[in-house]
Amino acid sequence: MATTPSSQNQFIHRLRRLAASQGPYLALALLLLVCAASSPAFRRPQNLLNITRQVSYSGIIALGMTAVIIGGGIDLSVGALLAFAGTVGIMAMNTCDNPTAGLTVAIVVMLLTGAAGGAINGALVTIGRLPPFIATLGTLSIFRSLSLYLAGAGLTTARHDVFMQVGGAVIGGVPLPAWILLLLTALGAVLMTCTKLGRHICAVGSNQRVARYAAINTGKVTLITYVLIGLLAGVSAFLLGGRLGSISSSTAGNAYELDAIAAVIIGGASMAGGRGSMTGTLAGILILGIIANILDMWGVSVYLQGAVKGVVIIIAVLLQRPQNQQA
């Protein structure tokens, strides 16, 4: 039935829609204001730059997670895949005597390992018809175990300094990983909103059967989202390894998948698929990074930070609920 809400209702409706669609950005702005006002140490430029670096590694993965979740899936294995790709990549680099060749080998091997790991996840979900949660829970265990085995449960250390120079590079005052996060967010936003693939990912996540009947190769679309997040795990492995000069087979990438999922949800995506945005995810990961940072500044125990993070995630989802219920 056609309804014509009164102008006052329409205003409230619009306001609510604005809050729902711009929520993550408004929350980020508000958080920045509160933190900057409350702590002089927080608003120091060096501190802000540090935050951007800290969130970059899981943030890059969160962009891939955005595509996966919008497409109706989930990937729990990416943190472990980062450790695996990083370990394999550094081992490959260490076989090269020439630093430049080593660096190239590291990039290529890490990206390929990441993409291959993602392709395995994608194949399990599409060809194997496994629920994504189960498939990636399995590969999480496999990737982590393989890196522990390869590295003897310890660190894999790079022998070329150039690796560290790239990983620690600062361009125009901003750390390289932050630049890459920004660039990839822009590319991701274009992918999701302006390309056929992006539209198809949304369609598959919204209703796979409708997508199939609309002549979309749903298996291919789903597979691509997993390859994409795997590739981004490789990028993140390279930047994190370069920053530290090594990859720890036991701790590298630990819980990154959870931060990534949290960022995607805070950024306004629907866990059920079909809806979400790359820029929202960027806001989400920044919110998480800023909260961790300000809690440090305020001297809150590290052990309590997880609790705060949990509360933020729950509040974010609760705030989104009115919009979902209108559907």
Partner: peptide
């Protein structure tokens, strides 16, 4: 269940199958 995406805009539904020609 198989015909339309109720969450998608009218426009995006109409071009869902034929999207390639708009790219």
């Amino acid at each position: 269940g198989a015909g339309i995406l109720t969450d998608f805009a009218l426009t995006a539904n109409i071009t869902l199958t034929s999207l390639a020609r708009y790219c």
